[in-house]
Computed example of a mutant assay.
Amino acid sequence: MTRHPTSTNARRPANHGPKAAARNRAALIAAAREIYAEHGLDAPLSAIARRAGVGQGVLYRHFPDRAAVASAVLEENVLQIEQAATAEDATLAGVLGVLTWHLTESAAFISLLHTDGAGRSGTREYAMALSGRVERALRGHVPDGHPLGGEGDLMLAVAMVSGAVNGPTRDERERRALAAWRLLGVGVGPVRPFGG
């Protein structure tokens, strides 16, 4: 006969509940950004789950499909740019540094900036809303007479720089992005995530 411990001192593993869920979600978004940068938006979701150190079931609990994962990455990208823009010491160069970091890290973010109306209408509206938020965050820091001050020039410049962001390594993508800004005559602050 098998005996099971009946002592009240026997402990179950701790259930971290919402804390674990929040950590898992953050790990999945970070992993998705890395995987998308390395392999593009068509990378397998299983690779994202592996990189985050969770099972695929955990991924699907947070994100029911591929679009939901990409949307979460995009939302975080845009939120960081908005936070950089509303920081007490915000400058155009500083906000462009944060935006450039996201360009070098996220293929999904680059795709957002190149939305041309193709695809499903719901996806297009979502992308346009996020792109509008990026433009508003940047626009508030463009001084009068700045080369990017003309109607439509700001986001055209962002799209042009994002088009230059390619290369096999993050360092190469950053080098190309900074070269593109320089060729446009625009100064960029440190390339890093907001708060980094």
Rank of each mutant, 00 (worst) to 15 (best):
M1L: 08
T2I: 14
T2L: 12
R3G: 06
P5L: 12
P5M: 05
P5W: 07
P5E: 14
T6W: 02
T6I: 08
S7I: 10
S7D: 15
A10C: 00
R12V: 12
N15P: 00
H16L: 14
G17K: 03
P18I: 05
P18R: 14
P18G: 07
P18S: 10
K19L: 13
K19Y: 03
K19C: 00
A21F: 01
A22N: 04
A27F: 04
R33P: 03
E34N: 07
I35S: 10
Y36P: 01
A37H: 02
E38C: 09
G40T: 12
G40K: 12
L41T: 15
L41D: 10
D42S: 15
A43L: 05
A43M: 06
A43E: 06
L45N: 11
S46D: 12
I48E: 07
R50P: 00
R50F: 04
R51I: 00
R51H: 10
G53P: 07
G55Y: 02
G55F: 01
G57Y: 02
H62R: 01
F63H: 13
F63S: 05
P64E: 09
A67L: 09
V69S: 01
V69A: 03
A72L: 06
L74M: 09
V78F: 04
E82R: 09
A84G: 11
A84M: 05
A85H: 00
T86Q: 10
A87S: 15
E88C: 00
T91G: 14
L92H: 10
A93Q: 13
A93W: 03
V98H: 07
V98A: 11
V98W: 06
L99T: 13
W101I: 01
W101S: 14
L103H: 08
T104W: 00
A108S: 15
I110H: 09
L113V: 06
L113R: 03
G117M: 11
G117Y: 11
G117L: 08
G117V: 10
G119R: 06
G119A: 08
R120N: 11
S121P: 09
S121N: 05
G122M: 03
G122T: 08
R124P: 00
E125L: 13
E125A: 13
Y126T: 13
A127L: 02
A127E: 13
G132M: 03
R133S: 14
E135F: 01
A137P: 07
L138P: 09
H141M: 10
V142A: 08
P143R: 11
P143C: 12
D144S: 14
P147V: 15
P147F: 08
P147H: 11
L148P: 08
L148C: 08
G150Q: 15
G152W: 13
D153L: 09
D153F: 06
L154G: 12
M155P: 05
A157T: 12
A157I: 11
M160W: 06
M160F: 10
V161S: 09
S162A: 15
A164F: 04
V165N: 03
V165G: 04
V165C: 07
N166E: 06
E172A: 14
E174C: 11
R175C: 04
A177W: 07
W181G: 11
R182V: 01
L184P: 12
V186G: 12
P190D: 14
P193I: 00
P193H: 11
F194C: 09
G195N: 09
